[in-house]
Amino acid sequence: MIPLSGDFDNAKGIIKEMMGSFETLRGTSVLKRGFAHMLKNGVVMDVTTAEQAQIAEDAGAVAVMVLDKLPADVRKAGGVARTASIRIIEEILDSVTIPVMAKCRIGHVYEAKVLGEADVDMIDESEVLTPTDEFHHIWKWDFTTPFVNGARNLGEALRRIEEGAAMIRTKGEPGTGNVAEAVIHIKNVNTELRRIKSVYDAGDEQDLVSIAREFKVSYSLVEETASLGRLPVVNFAAGGISTPADAAYLMTLGCDGIFVGSGIFKSEDAKERAQAVVLATTFWEDPGKVKEAQKMVDERQSMLGLDTKNLELRMQERGSTA
């Protein structure tokens, strides 16, 4: 089980106030990480309009992620990709009952503040948008709204958690319709987790200290993660997931759930595909059920996709060294 501790001592995002006669706390780690726990075994879908959000909700999405353009279109359009229009975000907030997330640029503190004021349920500090400050991610402890961040490996994931991320997702290579990079990233994380767990089990504190230096994070976070043998927050897979089988495969690799970006609304059978990906994510342990889900979609309707080898823009590399 994942612990919900991990408060930063001086987190400005925690608000203590009276609600009638009750003393309440908001923005604590329990509430932020707990929110992510409620999404487990679910599918979060990228949407750009209220109509798409409704299709996602009806299909059984556990939340929607609002963007101005789907990652595949960001890739095509070039230029600077920024957070979505507040008007569209508000329209979606008013039309669905499931949580609504939205993306802000890496390091863009004020885009995140605006999204917090707009009352989105979670902010994704995302490499899909054009980074503002690749060397300093947002200090997320300052926010009452929880954050999710992308990562390609364990060190990157832990650096984001140390900055206050309440949830991690693999980066994959967004907007390609190609799940290959997401698979590599989750396997990277798993391999490194096994490594630090074995060091922890062997009681080699000196090696744990050198791992903390290598990852550029505190010893206590490495120690906690090593003792758990998993990330101390909920971890979803993302980047290039297009079919029910893609989603089910990533669940077998130990992900807690799935983000689907362009895969659904860049296909020609979005409605059926949305339902099918949800079914495959829920019943991933049963290949018969995943086959039924896969049967609901038509490969000729899948987004064409891209080879990830010769891309001009590798979104996953954005902000990964900091």
Binding site: F22, T24, L25, G27, L31, G116, M122, T145
Partner: peptide, 16 residues
């Protein structure tokens, strides 16, 4: 009443 206390930012801890 779903989401009766508001959205995630309004999620809270309290002794009851």
């Amino acid at each position: 009443e779903r989401n009766a206390f508001g959205r995630q930012k309004d999620s809270f801890e309290a002794d009851i």
